[in-house]
Design a binder for these strands. Structure first.
Lengths: 98, 98
DNA sequence: CTTATATTTGACATATTCTGACAAGAATTA
DNA sequence: TAATTCTTGTCAGAATATGTCAAATATAAG
């Protein structure tokens, strides 16, 4: 499940118009449209408001938000999986040192 | 092994001055210093020149380069590992669909 | 069908982040 | 001490991200 899909589904489940979500998240309706289309990622601040507005766990949104970002950064690279592994190792290493 | 360390080690192994690497990579010496300190990431173009200049496998550099980037993006997040897992799933999913 | 409402799209303005250039300071070596 | 190398901070310009707006398209209601 991608962030954009989740946000759209939740909005529809709550039977809210984009205009209404836009008001709650405090952005232009055009932005909401683009977010649900996956053309844009919300800002972190918007994400928080989204969580409240649509009653979604913020950590879940945040996880998808970062994953989306990372995915787009490396999706064209054949080394993508290797890259993630190396990043994971580094994170784990860091966790040990604390 | 981080990108910055590797680049420094390789330079020293070849007994090159920063000034010399700077020339080969075609940037200011200050940039090289910052790169080796981890204050800046080289551009992709610089990375390629680095590979040639220091005789390092480009894919290795590229992997570290992306990993570095991702690491810094999520290192403060307690969800970091989860984020990587989700990104990995998405990449794998994408690979299936081709 | 035609009108009203909702959504999508594109163009442009603004803000934020990234990068390179430069100069002065600090460290190292001769 | 002088020469050389490396480091650091600042600033301008480039690149990227985000917001605003208006017009185009799609959807629903009468």
């Amino acid at each position: 499940m991608q962030l954009s899909e989740l946000l759209k589904q939740k909005r529809e489940k709550k039977q809210l118009l984009m205009r209404e979500v836009a008001s709650l998240v405090d952005v232009d309706t055009a932005i909401i449209s683009k977010i649900e289309k996956g053309d844009r990622r919300p800002t972190k601040e918007q994400l928080l408001k989204y969580a409240t507005a649509l009653d979604i766990d913020y950590n879940k949104l945040l996880t998808l938000w970062y994953s989306d970002k990372i995915y787009h950064e490396i999706k064209e690279e054949s080394l993508a999986l290797k890259i993630l592994k190396v990043a994971e190792k580094r994170i784990k290493q860091e966790l040990k040192n604390t």
